[in-house]
């Protein structure tokens, strides 16, 4: 299969199956990205995993991106790979502050830890996650460090004299 055929499948197969849910599709440096509707995420993921042409059986990563000034504020990005078909795809959903994202742990169990990491770093809650709690930071930590408004050196307290003063 040539790279062009592969791209064709990755782009059109998803677009045709979910006409209303795929909001934007981009191909940049050979990587296919679909911006999809949050509500349809789980059904799209199930489709990607089970469709015989796509067979996305491996979840590579789940991560968040904070666009501080944009509304809705966050992107949650899913990197998927097919060990059988050897192709990659990227899905994106937009999540506003305080809003929950659907968890894909019911589709791939491996999404468990990365989703916890996104929660830990951005404070995005995943609905349907079997045990959503912080993963790197202590459970009583305040704030979400990878948000753009979190200071690089953290907040000042008794352990961190170089941190910024909290307003």
């Amino acid at each position: 299969m040539t790279p062009a055929d592969r791209e064709e499948i990755l782009v059109n197969k998803v677009k045709n199956a979910f006409r209303d849910a795929v909001m934007e599709t981009a191909v940049y440096r050979g990587e296919v990205t679909h911006l999809v509707d949050k509500m349809a995420l789980r059904s799209i993921c199930t489709f990607l995993k089970t469709d015989p042409d796509l067979k996305m059986n491996y979840i590579v990563d789940v991560l968040g991106v904070d666009y501080q000034t944009r509304v809705p504020r966050f992107d949650v990005v899913y990197h998927l790979y097919s060990i059988i078909k050897k192709h990659r795809i990227r899905l994106k959903i937009r999540v506003a502050e305080g809003e929950a994202a659907p968890s894909v742990t019911s589709v791939w169990l491996g999404a468990n830890w990365p989703e916890r990491e996104v929660y830990d770093m951005f404070g995005i809650v995943f609905e349907g996650h079997p045990g959503l709690k912080r993963i790197y930071l202590p459970e009583d930590w305040e704030g979400f460090p990878l948000r753009k408004d979190y200071p690089l050196r953290g907040y000042k307290d008794r352990y961190n004299p170089y941190g910024e003063e909290k307003e």
Binding site: Y28, R29, E31, V60, D61, V65, V77, H79, R90
Partner: peptide, 20 residues
Amino acid sequence: KGEIYSSIESPKGELGTYIV
């Protein structure tokens, strides 16, 4: 401007970098 994901086979497994 853009976003990419690139990965290699590291001794432990798939080591990838995603840059926006």
